[in-house]
Design a protein around this nucleic acid. Structure first.
Lengths: 225, 225
DNA sequence: TTAGATTCGATACAGAGCGTCTTAGATTGA
DNA sequence: TCAATCTAAGACGCTCTGTATCGAATCTAA
């Protein structure tokens, strides 16, 4: 299943004969998919290939040629939209670095882009391709950055060295995703602050910093599915 | 929209004339819906009313008569299946009471019943009726029990009295739901233990127990949607 | 310049499932 | 008995699916 944004032709100057793929059509399809999913009451369920094709001024077969399923299309649209505005700073304080990024995340989740995330995660519950795309293209890169941030905190003695980084990150981000997906309570900056107060209180170093073991190989800490 | 399990007839002995509703058909429909959603690769998306009707040996119109949408049917099926095996004990330790219940929860989520939960939460992302049904019928009753458990902990001086109960509960259960829905890591009893270690460390009382304010009116702490 | 390859937009097609409706029969209270 | 309400079965028009076909367009290679 094709789930990568891959123009497919013109690799090292070589190009197979034939009419080249229309980049205009490609972009129009992804753009219309994003626009559809970001709008108010639309979700994965009522997105139809026919609508997207018509909206993009494209033949239906052109969509099916490049994306075998609706899920693959949405996954690519999501990947092409992943914001670059979600980074960790280096303020000298882990707690500050992370809470700032958490604030950025809830801002995105509460914006129109949030609809896209809930569409992906929602449809992902019955389509493993989608949820995998979310993990690989969204979660994993951000985790990699977070690991680096945590390692800085350990080196500065702010965090316990033997703390499991995935445990800490899930404790911080899990409540955000839970509130986002279940909607039983609001996602506010004050909530982020309180959450950080609570979780970091249990994550602080209680002895002098020692060479980290569990954080040293943090990037390999992803468990199986 | 009808989303309550309501037999509808025979209220206070009064019954309108006409053939009574077939309880056999009613139960067969709910049962087949549950069976379908609990099986391996089935989700809300590929559940069809026609299949359910055929499987239950029931006319399609009989389904539509009682449930206006697929979502209402699934919500009712879910409500009729909500296990009674998910309660909090009173061991004398909040941490123990809650971690035991968390272990029960992950056991359910990892079982066939977990498919039902992910189907509800997944489809709920594009159907507010469903996600509301989950909150009202599953989350809220369990939260009410959890508040009581936390109050006991405050009274015993195990928890800080000024701690927001929803914050603490989201910090504990959010990571479970996140792992369950995103699947980036596993839901094991060891994870529950580590998570409790981390979160309760920040929730412990650091002064003598005082009369609780935020926990006193905990049952009214649910925010807006 | 030409032949072959590949894509394009458009549309036709069969199939699945939707939600409504009709039918004929069953079961109740008045 | 009769009106009311339910039942199972399935016909109906509709939308969307995913595939196939069409002539036109655009590229490489000979």
């Amino acid at each position: 299943m094709r789930t990568t944004v891959n123009i497919g032709y013109e690799i090292r100057g070589k190009r197979s004969p034939g009419r080249p793929r229309s980049e205009r059509a490609h972009q129009a399809i992804l753009s219309c998919t994003l626009k559809f999913l970001e709008s108010k009451d639309n979700g994965f369920a009522n997105l139809t290939i026919e609508n997207i094709a018509a909206e993009a001024g494209v033949g239906k077969a052109t969509v099916y040629r490049w994306w075998p399923t609706k899920a693959a299309l949405v996954a690519d649209a999501f990947a092409s939209s992943v914001t670059q505005k979600l980074h960790f700073q280096d303020t000298g304080s882990v707690r500050k670095d992370i809470s700032l990024q958490m604030r950025q995340l809830i801002k995105i989740l509460r914006s129109r882009r949030g609809h896209l995330v809930s569409a992906i995660l929602g449809a992902g519950q019955s389509d493993k391709t989608l949820i995998r795309a979310f993990r690989e293209r969204f979660l994993k890169p951000r985790r990699a950055e977070a690991y680096a941030t945590l390692r800085r905190g350990v080196a500065r003695g702010e965090l316990a060295a033997d703390l499991n980084p995935d445990l800490l990150l899930d404790a911080l981000y899990g409540p955000i995703y839970m509130r986002f997906l279940i909607g039983h309570s609001t996602l506010t900056p004050a909530f982020v602050d309180d959450l950080c107060d609570l979780v970091f209180a249990g994550a602080e170093a209680r002895e002098l910093p020692v060479p980290s073991r569990s954080l040293a190989n943090a990037s390999g800490a992803h468990g199986a599915d």
